[in-house]
Amino acid sequence: MTGMQTAPIGPSDAVPRRDILTLVALTGAAIGVAGYAWPLIDFMNPSKDVLALASVEVPLEAISPGMGITVVWRGKPIFVRHRTDAEIQQARNTPLDQLSDPQDDRARVQPGHEQWIVVVGICTHLGCIPLGNKPSEMRGNLGGWFCPCHGSQFDTSGRIRVPPAPSNLPIPPYTFESDTKIRIG
């Protein structure tokens, strides 16, 4: 009986203590479940071997001015295009206020390699691959790329000029390893 008297469990005391125990138990369980779930979720992220193939090297010697090639990087088409002087001038001379996603051409190429434009070849509208990387394909009124799905047009800098695409073709991360070779990724 003495044990009962020294630690009385009255209604005023019992309820909050039970609440705290419940809260602590449920919090512990939630942390446990989250800790268990995270490896199962992260399992589905790209694995090390996929990440290891995350960069490609592209030799540029064979691409003459006006030509472009398509390389696959991380499963996506990358347009590498050798621009003519006229195409560079056209991109440079376009006033920024004519662009719906304003960006200077100098910000989209690498200094000293202005003839090379490298963009991810996926239309920013709904993911089709625009035409125009080969000279024989339709390039649209601006001489860049033309998307056959919904008619978006990109200029020679890969900037969006005719909607519905909302933004410019993105530039993948790449570096010049030499004047005739780039490394994408």
Binding site: P39, L40, D42, F43, M44, N45, S47, K48, D49, V50
Partner: peptide, 29 residues
């Protein structure tokens, strides 16, 4: 989850388990 990276054919099964153990995030776990 394991079934997502396992390959059920004789040519690839053993290798795909090693792939899970070494390359896939938390695959070993």
């Amino acid at each position: 989850v394991l079934a997502m990276d396992y390959m059920p054919n004789a040519a690839e099964a053993f290798g795909s388990v090693q792939h899970i153990m070494r390359d896939v995030n938390y695959g070993w776990l």
